[in-house]
Design a protein around this nucleic acid. Structure first.
Lengths: 213, 213, 213, 213
DNA sequence: GATGAATGAGAATTCATTCAT
DNA sequence: TATGAATGAATTCTCATTCAT
């Protein structure tokens, strides 16, 4: 039905292109809508409306808003996890391990602010963070990396689970404050977080904080 | 009919009492349902169903699930904020400031696990945290306390905003891991978090971590 | 029931006064609300809200909004019907009969515009006119008066039913246009309607019309 | 599959056809229900129930009962306005203008009694008339036609606004009485109304009125 | 695959009315 | 009588999902 005569050069496969495009169109629309309305308030209808596509078409690609969200998340995690892992793998010192982790995270967040906000969003009242399998895998990976680093003697024997939690908590929470500042300075954020984990409060850089909103 | 026994302290009007009870009944039901289904998936209907009250009665007290949630949050914040503030106010050293904050928080969380779970919940996929004015005020209070501690010379001059963020991130994230452990040990959690903020990773207690779920 | 004990000076009977007042308070509130929202959109709640009284109190006086409306209407009809009837009864000529009817009606409408509008209301889209028994009785009275006037030879033998309809239609419709004019001139309206019924179009006063809204 | 038989005129898309049908189905149901219950008492549910369609389908076509009502009104006005205007345009005398207007109106009302009743209905208590833009446009058209007829010298200079009001009032009010009579005789009604406007009461046909309900 | 109208379950909300105080 | 919270049926409206085209 949609077959083009085989003799014609076939402009790169209309079908395939559209198929991939539609998936991306939906994901893009979802990002916008989640960022606007927040995850909880967003409906599949809202996503479809932000799309030139028909309602039924959505279901050729995803089965629910959860699935779209997960796909979004997974895309992100897939993009950042290898970088984080690589950074830690090549760390020769604790400081490299820690600073590499934070720097990579903050730089990613700054470069993809839209996505980060869609995920960890501040409406006036609500924050949503969806921990998809990919995200959770990222946490496990961090813990595994920590455990390996302990095993290899790079880190002293400590509570890898709590340390992972602390790193994650600081990373997300500082990222958020960072984005609210005039010039989101990833270097400052990295220095701060790294210093905290390296030497505690007394090691923190002596600077004048900027006031956020 | 309206005569009160002179001995008994006038029961403040049955009407009034019932009214206060109903408010609490709804809040309690909301806590359960939020903890069960997660905030996003909960509907006003669900809350009403978890109540002996009629549908319309809900709307005599709250206008939406958001409002119930906020009321819950505010109750919690109101309960814990004074304790936190007091703890920090009487701190003579940085360590007292930090450990007092974490201990108070972890002990509260452990004692009011249900509430905490209703708010910072992990379904398979979603975390919700609603920052009501009261909660945000709690954050501001922490920052203000930090700034004051800097001004008074207790703390060195540092980025109070980021430090606040780090404390909040670590507190929530570790609290969550703590609750998943067999025996939620607030002392361990406090010691860990305090050590991290006092001396960084190298100061962390050398223990064997327990595996979480 | 309304009897005051002749012996005691009794400060005008607090109870009775309140009772009558409440009825009027409700009627007054209803007038306002009907005029604001239109009859159809008004709910009993709306009326109560426009009152300092409690919800239950409403039901001591009326059983529904219909009843309030009817009471309003009846009050009006009761106020105007005797005047109309009297006017027609003393008519010695057809012209006196007709002009007396219209003048009385237009003057009443002008003097009690608020009530008239509450009854025959123009929202953007809706006109409501409720023909309560009292109002219908007014129509019957007009027809009866016409029939009597025919019987007595004042009017020729004609279709009293249609003539009544024509008078009512012209009265209400012109009253409405009259109220929209800058200076609602009852004399002009009366002269116009009377002339129409006395001699038809060719007898109408030659004036320049004012443009309505 | 999508092939159309070359001989048959393409059925304009079954989808499209059904869509138009559903709109009509809803309008038809609304007419019945309004006529039965009166506009005020009718709910959207009532309309849906009078339909084989699902609840949600209603909202694909209209957003409220008001919108259905307006659509009904507009349909009617659209159907009758051109006829009225044409009738008046070709009038050579005042009598033709007046009688043409009334005859067209009464004949339409008699032929579309259901619609008229849905709009100008007498329950025991309530009359509703909704003046949609289309209806108001019909009034303005009548006034404009009158003004033009005055300008052209057909009519003497008179208050076109009041005359319009009088015509409208008489038309609606007599139509209603007409429909209540055993044999709704449009000719009688036309003759009566025309005579009234041509020569006033004394010109009215001398007949014995029939008693209404 | 794409379309978009239909579906109908169910969520949010309102309302008239009751009744204990 | 006045009060006003409780009631729960009824109503409006939305939504995810299906399916004929």
């Amino acid at each position: 039905m949609d077959l083009t005569t085989p003799t014609a050069p076939r402009p790169a496969g209309k079908r395939e292109r559209t198929k991939q495009q539609n998936r991306q169109v939906i994901l893009q629309a979802a990002r916008q809508v989640f960022a606007e309305l927040g995850y909880g308030a967003t409906t599949v209808r809202d996503i479809i409306r932000a799309t030139p596509l028909a309602a039924g078409t959505f279901y050729n690609y995803f089965n629910s808003k959860e699935e779209v969200f997960q796909a979004m998340q997974d895309e992100i995690a897939l993009r950042i996890r290898p970088r984080l892992h690589e950074e830690r793998a090549k760390a020769k010192t604790i400081e490299e391990f820690i600073s590499g982790t934070f720097r990579t995270f903050f730089e990613y967040v700054a470069s993809d602010e839209a996505n980060f906000h869609a995920i960890r969003r501040n409406t006036d009242t609500l924050r949503v963070r969806m921990d998809t399998p990919e995200i959770l895998a990222g946490f496990h990976e961090l813990r595994a990396d920590l455990e390996e680093a302990i095993a290899s003697g790079l880190f002293p024997p400590l509570d890898a689970d709590y340390l992972m939690a602390a790193i994650v908590g600081v990373a997300f929470e500082i990222a958020e404050r960072m984005l609210r500042r005039e010039r989101a300075c990833t270097e400052d954020a990295t220095r701060f977080a790294t210093a905290l984990f390296m030497g505690g409060i007394k090691a923190l850089p002596a600077i004048t904080p900027e006031a956020p909103a």
